[in-house]
């Protein structure tokens, strides 16, 4: 697992921090890597913008904060405008496509949108949007494998919510896989 800097951002209530925790657990407890999660922790985070940063490496992490983000998971327009300019030129942008209207792609940035909130509502609980985004990350980037991620989810949410969150993860995962497969078919990227 090479060094990867990830920013997860949205507004309070979308489960941004939990996304970071589940991602970190997936890597550092249920896979062989190291993951340090930090959060932009401020009074403004209460109900306003909310950001989690996850640094992933296969070696011990020293500098704890994200320097140049390789992957961004963006769940609000405000977050997009704030963070997108810092995204690595060959990075990856994952966004909630009904809440974020991204500008044109810069450089070699790969962009994937997902109607995660709508999917979450279809699953019966808008709160699981975050696990849809996490599944989407897994499906599009391959950064985390579904099995450790499912384990991390089971260890992070209350018992009666595990199944729903697993469904949400799967939904995002399949959707992401589908988008990538579609691109490959279209010859946009190579396997």
């Amino acid at each position: 697992m090479s060094h990867t800097d990830i920013v997860i951002s949205g507004f309070g209530g979308q489960g941004v921090i939990l996304t970071g925790i589940v991602l970190g657990k997936t890597i550092s407890i249920y896979s062989d890597g190291y993951a340090t999660m930090t959060q932009n922790f401020g009074p403004e985070a209460r109900g306003g913008a909310c950001t989690a940063q996850v640094v992933i490496d296969n070696d011990k992490i020293r500098y704890p904060y994200v320097q140049v983000p390789d992957i961004m998971i963006i769940m609000s327009q405000e977050a997009y405008e704030k963070h997108e300019p810092s995204l690595s030129p060959d990075g990856m942008l994952l966004f909630e496509e009904e809440l974020v209207e991204p500008g044109p792609a810069r450089d070699k940035i790969r962009m994937y949108g997902i109607p995660a909130t709508r999917f979450a509502e279809e699953l019966g609980n808008p709160m699981v949007l975050n696990m849809i985004m996490l599944g989407f990350l897994s499906g599009t980037s391959g950064l985390i494998e579904p099995i450790p991620a499912r384990n991390a989810i089971a260890a992070s949410v209350p018992g009666h919510f595990i199944e729903l969150n697993h469904l949400a993860f799967n939904k995002g995962y399949q959707y992401g896989k589908g988008l990538v497969a579609g691109e490959m078919l279209a010859g946009k990227i190579s396997g």
Binding site: I21, Y34, A35, M37, T38, Q39, F41, I61, P64
Partner: peptide, 10 residues
């Protein structure tokens, strides 16, 4: 410090 306090790791 705040960084260590709010930093999540294994």
């Amino acid at each position: 410090d705040e960084c260590i306090g709010h930093m999540t790791e294994r």
